[in-house]
Amino acid sequence: MTSIPQIVVNDLQYHYPDGTIALKGVSLNIYRGEIVGIMGKNGAGKSTLIKTFNGLLKPTFGTVYVENNNISDTFTSYLSKKVGIVFQNPELQLFANTVEDEIKFSLKNLNLSKEAIDEKISETLKIFDLEKYRNRSPFNLSGGEKKRLAIASIMCRDPEIIVFDEPTIGQDASGITFIKQIIKENATSGKTVVIVTHDIEFTIDVIPRIILMADGLVVADGPTHKILSHDTILEMTSLTSPQLVKFSKSLTELGEKVPEDIFLVKQMVQYLSEFFKNESRKRKGGKP
């Protein structure tokens, strides 16, 4: 089942009408149930790439297949049922009188019965902890709540693939924790999650595989902690190492034997616990 990729991008080029070439030949595969990060400088082509996934932009050359649909000859109205994109700024999409109507609008073109729509609305409001705001205006929500509503208005459509564009900008710790949880739940239920982000600390925590882009091309594709410790690649893409990747690298340089894949807080705590226990044992043992 996993052998056939869900998204197949083959030698994709995209030229904007003003002549700018945003993508210069991108090829990649994304499999069902994966969490994939897309990173790189502003202007590297990340946003352009994800906009092809639901057909908002059509390839100038090359092909994009989503679940065997060639997006070049498929309507966005159809693709948007399979691929949901959550854009960075929730204010670009909130318009309805109430939170409930906002969700209802997303369900409009899915040919659902009235009962099914009502059920879906209640279910979604519950998942996103927005029940108490059901009849409130979306404009009176806080920044974090608006973000939740924007995600809800995409997720209620049950897309197979969910794309997040910079989900952590402007979010505090509780907002980020919520987004992490949503992403993990989706992946475990078999959905595919694609995330465009600059946030390296968030990336190292939830995204196992990243694709790095620079200047309209893919420059690296692989396990997150390996790529985010590779200095030349990082420099090329204007990224930096996450703190704990840097930390274990420095520890190794000090001559400590740090296992290669320590990059989470939990792992580092465990490692250092052992380290401090050993040190105090040594000190006790060393005393005459």
């Binding site: 966005t76 109205s77 049922k81 999409q93 208005s153």
Partner: peptide, 9 residues
């Protein structure tokens, strides 16, 4: 783009 992504036509 944002509205099309949630089924707007």
């Amino acid at each position: 783009d944002a509205q099309k992504s949630r089924g707007y036509e």
